[in-house]
Amino acid sequence: MSGTKTKIVIRQKMSNRILVAAGFPALGAVAGWLLKLLANWAVSWPWIPLPGPLELINNAPEPTATLVSLLVGALAGGVLVLMAEYGYVTVTIEDDQVTTDRGDSSQSVPRAMIHGVFADGRRLVILGERGEELAVESKNEGADLPSVKQLKEGFQEHGYPWLTEGDPYRDEYRRWVEDMPGLPVGGNALLKARAEALKKQDETNIAELRTELAKLGVFVRDTDKRQWWRHVQPADDQKSNHL
Rank of each mutant, 00 (worst) to 15 (best):
D171V: 06
Y88P: 13
T90F: 11
L34E: 09
I93P: 02
G131C: 06
L213A: 02
A76P: 06
L56A: 13
E203G: 05
R230L: 01
G87Y: 14
A112G: 08
D236F: 14
F219P: 07
L70E: 00
Y160F: 14
A22H: 08
R102F: 10
K5E: 00
S44F: 04
K5I: 00
W47F: 10
G87M: 13
E133P: 07
V89L: 02
E208Q: 12
A143T: 08
R210Y: 07
G217P: 05
V218H: 06
E132Y: 03
D96F: 05
P53R: 04
T211A: 15
R102C: 07
R174K: 13
V91D: 06
V185R: 09
I126G: 03
E208W: 07
V185G: 04
V218C: 07
D120N: 13
L127Y: 13
A74Y: 14
A189E: 04
S44T: 01
R122K: 11
L127M: 11
I48F: 00
H231D: 00
G166I: 09
D222R: 15
E165Y: 09
S105W: 14
V125M: 03
Q107K: 05
V125K: 01
D202T: 15
P46R: 04
D101P: 08
P184A: 04
L75K: 10
D171F: 11
G28N: 02
V148M: 09
K5H: 02
V79K: 10
M1S: 15
S15L: 12
R170Q: 04
R174W: 11
T6K: 13
L35M: 14
D202G: 15
T164N: 09
V136N: 01
R17W: 02
Y160V: 03
G182W: 11
N58A: 05
N16Q: 11
H231A: 01
A143K: 09
P110G: 03
L145P: 13
S108Y: 11
Y86P: 03
K225E: 03
V91K: 06
R122Q: 10
L54M: 01
G128M: 05
P110N: 04
R122N: 13
E137K: 10
I8T: 05
V91N: 07
V109E: 00
E178I: 12
R111L: 01
L183F: 15
E172I: 09
A197R: 10
A22P: 07
R210K: 11
R122I: 12
P51Q: 00
G23R: 12
S138H: 06
